[in-house]
Amino acid sequence: MDTLVLRVVGMSCAGCEQRIDAVLRRVEGVREVIADHTTGAVRVRVGSELADRGVLAERLDAAGYEVIEGVGR
């Protein structure tokens, strides 16, 4: 199982953390989501290549958040 760390712009409160958790848990292969609005980081444990960085970024973009590139596994 891999862990991806995404830097997310627009996450400003606990409600955003919950929304991001709900959005990403719908992606096949996502096992765990830990979002922290104070750091802007989202850690995602994935158990499948179906949940790659691009798919996660697309889902977050559709939910109104921006993923900044350059943060990896």
Rank of each mutant, 00 (worst) to 15 (best):
E17A: 07
V33P: 01
G29N: 02
A22K: 14
V46N: 02
G15F: 08
I20V: 12
E28P: 10
V23G: 01
T38K: 14
A63H: 05
A14Q: 13
V33W: 10
D2N: 14
L4H: 09
V23K: 00
R19C: 01
C13E: 08
T3E: 13
V44D: 01
Y65Q: 03
L56H: 01
R19I: 09
V23I: 12
G64M: 08
V27L: 09
L56R: 01
C13K: 06
A41W: 07
L4R: 09
V23H: 02
A41N: 12
V30H: 07
R53G: 00
I68S: 12
V42S: 03
G40K: 03
S12M: 10
M11H: 08
E49G: 07
D2G: 08
A35P: 05
G29I: 01
T3H: 09
E49D: 14
I34Q: 15
T39W: 11
G64C: 08
A14L: 08
V55G: 02
L60S: 05
S48W: 08
A63M: 08
E66W: 10
L6Y: 07
G29M: 01
D36T: 10
V55Y: 05
R43G: 00
A41G: 00
G15M: 09
D21L: 11
E58G: 00
V67H: 10
G70V: 11
A51K: 02
E49W: 03
R31W: 06
H37W: 12
A22P: 01
A14H: 11
T39I: 03
H37F: 15
E32G: 00
R31D: 13
G70R: 06
V67W: 10
R19E: 12
L60D: 05
L4G: 02
A62G: 10
D36G: 05
V5I: 14
T3K: 14
G54E: 13
E66Q: 15
G40I: 03
E69S: 13
D2K: 15
V71W: 12
Q18W: 10
R31N: 10
R7V: 06
G40N: 03
A51E: 02
R73Q: 12
V5K: 13
A41Q: 14
V42A: 09
I34K: 15
D2Q: 14
R26W: 05
A35Q: 07
Q18A: 15
A62S: 14
A14F: 07
G64S: 08
V23T: 11
G72Y: 13
V9C: 04
R7I: 00
R31P: 00
A22C: 02
V30I: 03
E69V: 09
I68K: 15
T38C: 00
V8L: 07
V9M: 11
D61W: 14
V42C: 04
A63V: 06
I20E: 04
G70N: 06
G40A: 03
L24H: 06
V33Y: 11
H37Y: 15
R53W: 02
L56I: 02
G47I: 01
G64Q: 05
S12C: 06
V55D: 02
D2V: 11
R31T: 10
G15N: 12
I20Y: 05
G70P: 05
G10K: 04
R25L: 13
D2M: 14
